[in-house]
Nucleic acid binder design. Structure first.
Length: 196
DNA sequence: ATCCCGAGGG
DNA sequence: CCCTCTGGAT
């Protein structure tokens, strides 16, 4: 049960896809602030397309990178209509062919909709994997490969969710809360932050 | 000044 | 590989 104050909320696959696209380099809180009004006006690809770039931009102007995101959301809506019967395609290749949708966004959507377990390496997962010594890889794709290799297949979705939440609430970027961390005993980075 | 469930273009 | 897009929170 996601907390609407801190995690993305959505009521359809289309809304999920759009919300995740909007969440790039933006907090879920800021996305959740803008999306209710947006989806009230345009909850489906057809209405989103009709709203147009300027219309979408007005709803999301409080989110970072809003011009590019408005352009992508409208373009993506058009492709859903013209190529996918107005539905969100449930495979990685088609998702990543959409403007504004890269590997990370596709992974979140596929994982969230229960299509395929995946570890989406966002800024939180990347940071936590490095601090815990689970990966030293320099790119998200390589960190993902390391995590996929060391995580039991049946635990991918749960591992992904834990990494995100741990990074967001405990192993935060600036002042990680090592004192309340469940795995600090296993963490090679703890000493870096002690006393801070 | 840094960070936030990144992606696309040069 | 780098740069840009971008506002709000801390």
């Amino acid at each position: 049960m996601p907390d609407p104050r801190t995690e993305l909320t959505y009521q359809s696959p289309f809304a999920l896809l759009v919300a995740v696209v909007l969440s790039a380099q933006a907090t879920d809180v800021s996305v959740n602030k803008a999306t209710p009004a947006l989806f009230a006006s345009a909850g489906a690809p057809q209405t989103m397309l009709a709203l147009g770039e300027a219309g979408v931009a007005r709803f999301i102007s409080s989110i970072g990178l809003y011009n590019a995101k408005a352009r992508n959301v409208v373009a993506l809506s058009r492709i859903l209509i013209e190529q996918h019967g107005g539905e969100v395609p449930l495979n990685r290749q088609a998702l990543q062919a959409l403007p504004g949708v890269g590997r990370k966004t596709a992974s979140v959507v596929l994982n969230e909709l229960g299509v395929e377990p995946a570890i989406a390496v966002d800024t939180h997962v990347f940071r936590v994997a490095h601090r815990l010594g689970l990966s030293a890889a320099k790119t998200p794709d390589l960190v993902e490969a390391d995590l996929m290799r060391i995580t039991p297949k049946t635990g991918l979705t749960r591992a992904h969710h834990w990494l995100i939440l741990h990074g967001r609430y405990t192993c935060v970027a600036r002042k990680p809360k090592c004192g309340s961390c469940l795995v600090s005993d296993l963490c090679p980075s703890r000493e870096l932050f002690e006393g801070a």
